[in-house]
Structures are given as structure tokens and as C-alpha cells.
Write a protein that binds this DNA or RNA. Structure first.
Lengths: 332, 332
DNA sequence: CGGCATTGGTAAAGCGTTTTACCAAAGGCG
DNA sequence: CGCCTTTGGTAAAACGCTTTACCAATGCCG
């Protein structure tokens, strides 16, 4: 690895000159001959500036930590993809964290967050204990952006139009004629869960029976269990809103297990689309939101938010209804 | 952000002492009283060592670059998940790269790879130009691990038992009685594509008609197009091996579009399992391989490989046949 | 009481950049 | 010829940490 000093010696100049040439410092006055000689040597020796030294000097790492829950979940994959694209534009690299993986608290990632190794932190669907650790590590020193769910009152929260999406999904069922509409919600207490519940209530009525709500993490097995619970409670339920596609897949399994035909006996609509939603056993009708836009917005925000800033932002994008085959008017 | 020097001043000792206490340097002889006083101040001031400085001093970043193609692809998601877990154990953080995102060549990630900002590089090569750029950036200075596909003759290649998996898949069809078995392969020229083709040939015969092979990237649309091509060429084909699940989903779409029933008129088997494979329109029979183990192995390897080392390694894991509903004996 | 070992530390270099402040030499002008 | 300006740079500090080599004071032994 060539260093600035080596280049400088070879070119017979000081390392300051080399640095300033490499960085296109316009305030440097240097002869055209020297400049091109230095440039040639830089290229020839394949010089690349040492990022640790740059980072130490400038207190900027060019890196952003992005902590999700379960990388393997395609929904998060989409968000990450959008984040990647924006990070590229902002010339930042993304340090990936998975809060589902044990011991995040004293992981290298946490060390980096606490030790100035990242310029910002994006925390998705905060709510777990691990999130707390990570959040604390940031300790008011770097901008923190919370995705989809707030963490107490701190940080910069970015959301999708969750209430609107849930309202749209529920309204679709209502318009088809359904009146007993269950709700397979996401994890209890998260901001977007609360917002979507509000959207659901806007349609079914504020005085609705709360036993129509059941919570589930975004895993198919959990969604299945939750759906079964709902079937048991309300055998006369004719439709269901799922706040998560993966949980909706679980609901589909539950319906099949109970011999309930979808959509004839039970209509299912879900929030968020994934690529395979139309290839499922019953192609899922969904309300789609631009997940990659959310990732993009997160990076944008983290690049210009102040440390310890707090605000709330809803991505400017309209949910769209994607009609497939999992909903129809009630048959009984 | 507290620094070592600040702590030292407050404790009335030199920063060397603080550093050595923080790092549990056993060769340091210090009074118990001083030690606990320093420790108390460290905690109180919430000290976290500056990672840039550590990195500069030690020439180790504690970071590994992991470059995949398309984070949103669930197959890569699984690999990443395994990598995350192992990275946690090795106390390393993962810098995520997506080679599908434009301009990787002069991205921050590439700068970090070239500038000592990562301790190793894991590259899931797909024959893209971007791969080349990234690979070159590493420039013999850090260990490079290639996943699933080699890059010329350099680097440390890690694979799954691809030939065996393809053989197993094809054999399953053969045993059911199929004799005209198409092959929807992955991108041409990649190591694992070649290996799987070998497995396929092992069963169908080395002298088989090459027009039974069609290549596709791991996208459903591409898989669909490729499958249609195959249908047109060989209307009498009764079974198909897909080297990628996502492409297999495309094949399913193609069959539906052509009114070909699966599995009665066409059996489909795929390599690699994903969580929703059993929830598809036709539940896919697959040969499963441990994707997360591959991710794990990659991290392990990159942590102990020499820079510029080269070798080839096959993950020690046996593919297993997962029977679902997309295969049956030929009906004609 | 002189010499030696132990205790409890310290000083300083060095990792590679960036940046501010400074400066010698040459040329131009009166 | 003396002074000023421009050209073409340079010197050195600072970022925060780690580590090697060194050392003063004290206690102990003979």
C-alpha cells in the first residue's frame, strides 16, 4: 500500500502537495509539470488514500449503520435496496446490522457506532431490547433515524403513509360488503402498528370489538398461529386485513389447514407487496407502498439530520391497491 | 466523545495507563486503587475508543465487505443471514455492497476496499463488470473470498456441493420416469452454473442435446422468458430442472401462460429452497442446500485466508430433496 | 548502608491524512 | 537597485490510539 509520503518522496515533493493534488485543492498553486508528474506516480503506484487516517483526521467515516430485523425478510430487502441506491449517490457505504442476531449490544457494530466509526444510524422497526442497546451506543453523537417505529420520543422518525394504507385496505373489503373484518396486526406497540390500527378503525368503526385484533411478528409461522386464534374467536369473520405480507402467507396456510377457502369464505388483503405475492397458492390482493423509497428517504435524512435531532416525517408516496385473487364479496 | 487523554487527565495518570487498563493488558502493573479509579471514570464518561484511531494504529478495521447481487433476492438474504451470525462471533461488522447498484467502481465501498478500510472481501461474483472493479480494488492487499463462482484463477473460492445437488434433482426426475429433461440454468459461464450442468449431464447423458439448456439470471421475468424459449424448442419435454428458485417461479408463470399444467404435463424441480416455495401456486419440489452455512463459511474463510491466497473449498453439507407438488411421473 | 529487585507507573514514537501558516526565489516595476 | 508580487511550493501540527522502552521510588537483603 502506497502512502502519501512514498509518493511524495518519489516525486521529489512534500506530501502536502500530493495530498492537495489528489484532492483537487484549487487553492494549491503548482506547476503543470509537477502536477502531472505527481498524478502519474499516483496512478502508477496505484495509490489509494488510507481511509482510517482520513477518518481520524476528518471525524467522518463515510459509513452509515443500517440495522434491520432479519435480513432474509424480503420486505426489508426492498428497503435495503433503496437505501443502497441512495447511499451510492451520497457516497456512503452501508454497515449492515441484524438486530435478530444475538449479542448486538457488544458487537463490533455497536463499538463502531459508539466509537465514531459511523456517520449515522438507521434503526428499523425499533422496539426490541437489542435496539435499545444500539440506540444507546449512538449516544447523541450521531444522527439517528428511526424507520417505521419510534423509540420513545427521541430521534428522527420516518414512516410510510401507514394509516392511509390500512384504511385503503380495509375500505376495499368494506366496499365489497364485508362487515366483520379481522385484523392480523404487526408487533404490538410499534408506531406503524398503531397507525395502521387507526386506519382499520377508521373504516370498521372506533367502537369495534378489540378481540378482532391479533398481533404477530413478520414470520409465516407466527402469522399462521395468530390467524388460527382469530378463526377460533370469530368463526363468522368473512375478511381479514394483514399488516404484513409474510404474516399473510401464514394466514393463507391457516385457512388451508382449517379448510377455509380463500377468497370465497374468507377474503384476505395485505399491506406491502413482495415479488412473489402474485405467485402464491392464492394470489394476494395487497396495498402496495414504495419500500425502496423508504430506504432512500432514510439515507437522505441521516445525511442531513443533526445529531440528537427529533422530528417526524412521512414519505410522500401514495399507497396503491393491487387487485389479485384473495378478495371477493362475502358469500354468506 | 471522551478521549483517552481526557480520561487520563481526570484520573491523574498517563493515557498509556488508561489504554492498557481498558484493553486488559496483563503486563501492566498498576495499583488496584488506580485501576478501579480509572475504570470508574471510563464508565462515568461513557468512554468508547475511537475506531478510526484504532484502525489506523493497528491496520485492522474489524470490517468485512460483503458484495452480493440484489439484496432483495431472498436467496442472498439467507446467505447474508448466515454471514451475519458468523461475523458476530468473529467480532466483525459487515459492509454491504450491492453490485447491481450502479457505479460501484468509484463508490465509497470501493474506496474503503482499496484504502485499508476493510479486512477482507467476500464477492458473490456474477460475471458483471462491477465485480471486476471491486475485485481489482482489493489489489492483493486483503483476503478475497469468492462465493459460488470463481474469478479467473485468483482468490479463495467457496462453493456448495453444486454438482451433487443438480445430479440429485435430475435423478429424482429420471427415477420418476422422465427422459426428456430440460435445464433452466443460471447465468452462463459462472462456476456453479458449470458445476450444476455437469450434475445434470451425469444423469441425462453426456451426449444430450444442448438445446435442452437455456440460461437465465435469477429474476422471475427472465426465468419466464427462458422457460418459454424451452417450451418452443421442445414441446415434448416432460420435466425441467431449474438452477434457481426465483427463475423457477418464472417457469411456473410460463407454464400457466401456456396452459401447461404442473406437474401433470410438466414436472419442475429447483435447486435452493426459500421460505415461500411451499406456498406457491404449485408448491415447488426442490433440492435444498444450507445457504446460511455458505455465508458462515465465507466469513470464516475470509478471517483466516492470506491476502492473495487461492484455493477451492466446498462446504461440507449434503443437499436434501424436499418433495412438494411440482413433480410426478410423466403422464404421456 | 550499598546494591538489587519490585512496584507503579511515564514518555514518546508512529500509524497516514489534511490543513494552516509560512516562505524562498524569481520576476516586474519604478 | 530596491521593493513588491506572484509562483511554487514546504513545515509542522493535529486527529486518538497502542506499544515499547524506560525510569523513579520504595523495600529488602546481606
Amino acid at each position: 500500500m502506497a502512502t502519501l509520503a512514498e509518493i511524495a518522496k518519489k516525486a521529489g515533493v512534500s506530501s502536502a502537495v500530493v495530498s492537495r493534488i489528489v484532492n483537487n485543492d484549487t487553492s494549491l498553486r503548482v506547476s503543470e509539470e509537477t502536477r502531472s508528474r505527481v498524478k502519474a506516480i499516483v496512478r502508477e503506484m496505484n495509490y489509494a488514500p488510507n481511509v482510517a487516517a482520513q477518518s481520524l483526521r476528518s471525524s467522518k467515516s463515510g459509513t452509515i449503520a443500517f440495522v434491520v430485523h432479519d435480513v432474509a425478510n424480503p420486505v426489508y430487502g426492498e428497503i435495503l435496496r433503496g437505501a443502497q441506491e441512495e447511499a451510492e449517490r451520497q457516497n456512503r457505504a452501508i454497515l449492515l446490522g441484524d438486530a435478530a442476531v444475538g449479542g448486538v449490544s457488544n458487537s463490533r457494530l455497536a463499538q463502531m457506532i459508539g466509537g465514531g466509526g459511523v456517520d449515522g444510524l438507521i434503526l428499523q422497526a425499533a422496539g426490541l431490547q437489542a435496539d435499545n442497546m444500539i440506540f444507546k451506543a449512538a449516544d447523541k453523537n450521531i444522527p439517528v433515524v428511526l424507520l417505521q417505529s419510534a423509540f420513545g420520543t427521541d430521534g428522527h422518525l420516518i414512516q410510510l403513509p401507514d394509516t392511509e394504507a390500512a384504511r385503503m385496505a380495509t375500505q376495499h373489503l368494506w366496499d365489497l360488503g364485508h362487515r366483520k373484518i379481522g385484523c392480523l396486526a404487526t408487533t404490538e406497540g410499534l408506531t406503524f402498528t398503531r397507525d395502521r390500527l387507526r386506519g382499520w378503525r377508521d373504516v370498521v368503526g372506533a367502537d369495534v370489538d378489540d378481540s378482532l385484533i391479533v398481533f404477530s411478528s413478520p414470520l409465516a409461522v407466527e402469522g399462521e398461529a395468530a390467524a388460527l386464534k382469530l378463526f377460533a374467536r370469530h368463526p363468522d369473520m368473512t375478511a381479514m386485513v394483514c399488516f404484513n405480507v409474510i404474516a399473510a402467507v401464514g394466514a393463507l396456510r391457516a385457512a388451508r389447514a382449517r379448510g377455509i377457502s380463500v377468497p370465497e369464505e374468507l377474503s384476505i388483503i395485505s399491506i406491502h407487496d413482495v415479488k412473489f405475492a402474485g405467485d402464491l397458492w392464492v394470489p394476494l390482493t395487497v396495498v402496495r407502498m414504495p419500500l425502496s423509497t423508504l430506504g432512500e428517504a432514510a439515507i437522505k435524512a441521516v445525511c442531513k439530520t443533526e445529531p440528537a435531532g427529533r422530528m417526524r416525517e412521512v414519505v410522500d408516496a401514495h399507497p396503491t391497491l393491487v387487485l389479485r385473487a384473495s378478495t371477493c364479496p362475502p358469500q354468506r
